[in-house]
Design a protein around this nucleic acid. Structure first.
Length: 553
RNA sequence: GGCCCCAUCGUCUAGCCCGGUUCAGGACACAUCCCUCUCACGGAUGGAACAGGGGUUCGAAUCCCCUUGGGGUCACCA
């Protein structure tokens, strides 16, 4: 398991708050592809040094999402056959003794010092800098000059203290495989905190220590970390560590250029709630006190489950941000990976449909672009549609079934296996996602008596109007269907086509559309013969009669 | 605002490193038409970009500079 010294080791190091979003997934995927395509190892480390924001549930969520995407890790938290390894623990919160040891080395060498500034003091200085329109930099001259005895005494009396790194004065040049070289002028990096008052290391410190100890050779991460690299480099120098190769990937953004965030979900929900004038939360979605807080404060965000429940109740689609959102919406993991890798990279040669194996073989840093990418869900949907429709029949039945059992249990429970197969066959070629057939075919599982025949512009146009209109045809079709012996798609097709030929001038639509409205309540369904076959004779006739009544026949 | 980075169709991108083979290629989206029992799928066709300005050069999307625009970052968050 231990990697030879020459082996490439990459890592994905998420902080377990919230869910794995597409940006993080892209980083993980590319790290994985880079290492695995070169016979190296891909390592997963959980950066839970922020006690307030980290949770075990979130950690497990990340592992689950990574697994679903097909990204396996050689070292890291143990989960479903992945993980383990000689360099653990892989949760930073379990490595405090290691950080303390390294921290002490820096303090002993005079490369780091205790600082006792209060949050209020620092906030005031930051505010002043902002008011003066200059960049804030910590001035360490007072704390760094504190006599040893004073420090010891203050520590002893329990004053809150952080440890800051004594950043050497001078310009720092970052070398990046994607962006090239960049030099930060002297003074740009101040004496930053490396251990917080709660005893936990800061991100910068933990990252540097762990990357060294875990033998990470290549650090691939998002461009928002680019400036941090300077801090990591000075730390590596001070600790006598090796320097990994860096590559900063372009950030993935919203189509409107804003940073992708879960706030976008709240935006959609707020808009819908306002449009419909909703006063109270739909039952079982959001607790009353949360609802009031959310409505009252635009900065309050619903959590994952609340947002999904509310969206389901309102029947609105939320913009997908997290990997789990895409899964719920019926996207295929292999398609998501494919599309994600195309944000910021391309294999060239006009190739854009490929699997993770191909990505592993072909991914390299030279072809990573430097510009931020706007995430185009429409194109993703098109890719997904191609992959779903290209699936073999059996595979579609299996995967749609899995999806249905996970996200549409009630729907699945109301169809027999045979009905579900027929529905799959009828829906497969028009499915852009695995979720679509469940959302657009609810009428199949609505009890006959509960089906509403809505009087809308479209339905009235199809049913009413000059004779013979849709209602007339529907009435005439009733005895035809009633007299039908075999109730399957071919028999229905033969009978209904014969009717259309004889009574509607061969225009199948004149017969099909009234039937569609009769059984679905609306104007959209799978092909009508399949639809009637799945529904069965009794339901079809009951619904047709109810429809005749609803349209005044 | 300081600092850092970037700049090809609406979007993702190819081409740029090593200037001519490109009046810039692909995909998604869009438009028109066809197919059609609805919705989709599919087929055909079309419009669509080298941010602007200076250089260098016989020649620039490709090299240099400036302007403009965009992004990142400036926490006891990662």
């Amino acid at each position: 398991m231990t990697a030879p010294a020459s082996t490439i080791v990459t890592r994905f190091a998420p902080s377990p708050s919230g869910h794995l979003h597409v940006g993080g997934a892209r980083t993980a995927l590319l790290c994985w592809a880079f290492a695995k395509g070169r016979g190296g190892q891909f390592l997963l480390r959980i950066e839970d040094t922020d006690q307030k924001r980290s949770s075990d549930a979130a950690s497990v969520g990340f592992l689950k999402d990574l697994k679903w995407l097909g990204i396996d890790w050689d070292q890291g938290p143990a989960y479903e056959g992945c993980g383990g390894g000689p360099n653990g623990p892989y949760f930073q919160s379990e490595r405090l003794d290691i950080y303390d040891r390294e921290l002490q080395r820096l303090v002993d060498a005079g490369k780091a010092y205790y600082a006792f500034d209060t949050a209020e003091e620092l906030d005031a200085k930051r505010a002043a800098a902002k008011a003066a329109n200059v960049a804030y930099r910590y001035d360490g001259s007072a704390m760094a000059a504190l006599p040893k005895e004073t420090v010891a005494a203050w520590l002893k009396e329990g004053r809150p203290a952080v440890i800051r790194f004594r950043t050497p004065h001078g310009p720092i040049t970052i070398t990046d495989e994607i962006l090239g070289e960049a030099t930060l002028p002297a003074g740009e990096v101040d004496d930053f905190v490396i251990r917080k008052a709660d005893g936990f290391p800061t991100y910068h410190f933990a990252v540097v220590v762990d990357d060294e100890l875990m033998g990470v050779t290549h650090v691939l991460r998002a461009q928002e970390h680019f400036n941090n690299t300077a801090k990591h480099m000075v730390l590596q120098d001070a600790l006598g560590y090796r320097r990994p190769v860096y590559g900063h990937l372009p950030i993935i953004m919203n189509p409107d250029g804003s940073k992708m965030s879960k706030r976008d979900k709240d935006k959609v929900l707020r808009k819908t709630v306002a449009e419909r004038g909703l006063q109270a939360p739909p039952a079982g979605t959001v607790a009353a006190d949360r609802w009031a807080k959310w409505l009252g404060d635009k900065n309050t965000q619903l959590d994952f489950d609340e947002a999904n429940a509310l969206a389901a109740a309102l029947d609105v689609a939320l913009p997908e941000i997290n990997v789990d959102d895409f899964r719920r919406s019926g996207y295929l993991p292999e398609v998501l990976c494919n599309f994600l890798s195309l944000n910021g990279w391309s294999p060239g040669e006009n190739i854009e449909k490929f699997d993770n194996e191909f990505l592993k073989q072909r991914f390299d840093l030279k072809r990573v672009v430097k510009t931020p990418a706007k995430f185009d869900r429409t194109k993703l949907l098109s890719f997904n549609c191609d992959a779903v429709t290209a699936m073999p029949r059996e595979e579609f039945v299996r995967r749609a079934g899995d999806h249905g059992r996970t996200y549409h249990a009630a729907f699945m429970g109301k169809l027999s296996p045979e009905q579900f197969r027929l529905l799959c066959d009828a829906s497969h070629e028009r499915s852009k996602t695995l979720d679509e057939m469940f959302r657009s075919n609810r009428f199949f599982v609505t009890p006959d008596a509960a089906l509403v025949h809505e009087r809308s512009k479209n339905t009235e146009k199809a049913m009413l109007g000059a004779a013979p209109n849709g209602l007339d045809h529907l009435k005439a079709l009733l005895p035809v269907l009633e007299g039908l012996g075999a109730w399957d798609s071919p028999s229905l097709e033969a009978a209904i086509k014969a009717y259309a030929d004889a009574h509607a001038g061969g225009q199948l639509g004149k017969a099909a559309q009234p039937l569609r409205i009769a059984v679905s309540g609306g104007t959209v369904s799978p092909p009508i013969f399949d639809t009637l076959a799945i529904l069965g004779k009794a339901s079809t006739l009951a619904r047709a009669k109810a429809c005749v009544a609803a349209f005044g026949g």
